[in-house]
Design a protein around this nucleic acid. Structure first.
Lengths: 340, 340
DNA sequence: TTGAAAGCGGTACCAC
DNA sequence: GTGGTACCGCTTTCAA
């Protein structure tokens, strides 16, 4: 393979200066129709694409978005959310000639290092922040670094960044109403990591709605991992007054919960109704298929990338609201004591 | 935040020319000890880090590795392998000031586009290629693009790239021997996507070993998705002569298989022994906990990144052999008909 | 051992 | 409208 063409080559074969090629490339006004055609032809002929490095050096941009995800090294679980989320992100980056720089780190220390390094090396123009914590330190850090970002969800503390939000409250409402209508009266909630914002939001909402519907609630706390979900399930089923339904704050825990129920010889959903949240396809392939709240991860990805780019390019910092999460009814919920 | 320091700033505060700073930074010889100290001090004082863009422009490097993963848009499953693999990759990239550019695409067309785009935009210095197909077209594509790469596994067709390999044969041997010793005689194999190389390798090996051990084998083909794994399980359990043990070519399918067995009212592992492969932690949290073949994804990541960087930097194209996969015994296997 | 200067491949400003 | 040119922040000759 021969050397890739440069803007100089294009200028020469189009018989213009490279300045003009640059203008044309970026769709700027001030280039004659006729000339633009010649340039376009030359670009096509040579198959020229601008060097991201050169462009970035001149414009002080990286044309890249950063995404840093921290995973517990032991439970290095691939959250089913991410693959789809990333596909959504990619779909918008591809058409804008930008890329995603991904960093998977095992602990907070490396996580902070990663934010610093990507910033000081001018690797990215902004960050996608997911899994918001209570009073999330990353928001401060990124702001202090002078970087841009968007958050998935609205931080509870002060944030200078646009937030992408989706209403989950209505979905939880639907979910509990569904359970109540089936005849459940004792509905447990297996909450996620208390330090995570959406864990708390979901729990709070559950408690509110349950109170309104006259449901008794038992709460167990976890770290969102399947392992902790399984443990919580055992604790719930060890009680003298067992819940007849368990609502898990995410699908992986619900799936682990199903396994525990089987292990203990329960027949589902007759002996126990189970629901997830943050709906993923995985839930379709377990038995019984998991009733859950949809979360459209691809939509999150598209929205987050779009918002971040527009924030970077236009300084447009408005929040973005996604359609509310919808209830997906499958077969893991039924009236208590009903035939499997 | 103020403007980030440049090499010029460092040169000025160290009282030398920027050329020297560059030499010092890159640990090149020909800089006086004394001078090097002054430069290091200035670097530390200013907190300077070189701009990846500027550096890359001068050296025609991207200091980035590309990783393109294609996921079926419907079963956008996050293979548990990836999170750990990426953590392994990151651990070596971080200490070398390089980054990972990730692209998740829904189909082959976008996949090829992604390879082309990352190349023509000079975004990456090489690619990590996973999930090798039979006669994988990506190897040709990447070679034609003049890019570097390493493959996870050795391609069946001609490849100019270093391969990272791990012996799986011995593990399959152990696995089947284990089953045979438990008393199983009819052992099914749920193979992965036939177009994928490791699916075929594993199946072939299973057939060889089974023949040697005098085991009867029934084979079902899938696409590696939990859904297809579930379907295969149904087909197997519908037979008049059921297998007493099923070996799945990956863990997600094995987990789906466990669900199917429960659904059909079987008691595991009494009525059916199940094993996975490509061992992941997920298997610990299902019931019964999954016996599987370990795969050390973090190790794959570290090895792949290290090999690719050395290939890029030194043209060192030797294959790398990882420790053989080991059998992880958990509780999803037992003598046929034994108490659960 | 060190400094000066010429790129790398773009962008952007300033004349004409 | 268009060409010329000075950067962007590094690396890499080439002299001194």
């Amino acid at each position: 393979m021969t050397r890739q063409p440069t803007i100089e080559d294009v200028a020469r074969t189009a018989g213009v200066s490279k300045g003009l090629v640059s203008l044309a490339l970026n769709g700027r006004p001030g280039v004659a129709q006729e000339t633009r055609k010649r340039i376009d032809a030359a670009v096509a002929e040579l198959g020229w694409r601008p060097s991201a490095n050169a462009r970035g050096l001149a414009t002080k941009r990286a044309y890249s978005l950063g995404f840093i995800v921290r995973r517990d090294p032991i439970t290095f679980q691939a959250d089913p959310f991410f693959a789809s989320f990333l596909a959504g992100v990619e779909s918008v980056l591809a058409e804008r000639d930008q890329v995603l720089v991904l960093s998977v780190v095992p602990d907070v220390e490396r996580e902070f290092e990663a934010y610093r390094r990507l910033t000081s090396d001018r690797r990215v123009d902004g960050f996608l922040i997911t899994d918001l914590l209570q009073d999330d330190p990353r928001v401060r850090l990124v702001a202090d670094l002078g970087q841009r970002a968007v958050t998935l969800g609205r931080p509870d503390s002060e944030s200078p960044f646009p937030a992408i939000v989706r209403d989950y409250d209505a979905g939880i409402d639907e979910l509990l109403t569904h359970l109540a209508e089936l005849g459940h009266r004792r509905v447990a909630h297996v909450a996620g990591d208390e330090r995570m914002q959406h864990a708390t939001t979901r729990l709070t909402r559950h408690l509110e709605v349950a109170a309104r519907l006259g449901l008794q609630t038992i709460v167990e706390h976890t770290d969102f991992s399947p392992e902790s979900g399984a443990a919580a399930t055992h604790r719930l089923l060890d009680r003298s007054e067992r819940p007849t339904a368990i609502v898990y704050a995410n699908d992986p825990m619900a799936i682990a919960g199903i396994a525990v129920a089987h292990e203990r010889g329960l027949t589902l959903p007759r002996d126990l109704s189970i629901t997830g949240m943050d709906g993923s396809d995985t839930g379709r392939f377990v038995y019984p298929a998991l009733t859950t709240l949809d979360n459209d991860p691809v939509g999150w990805g598209r929205a987050a990338a779009t918002a971040l780019l527009s924030y970077i390019e236009n300084g447009d910092g408005d929040d973005v609201t996604l359609p509310a999460a919808a209830l997906i009814l499958r077969s893991s919920t039924a009236p208590p004591g009903s035939p499997g």
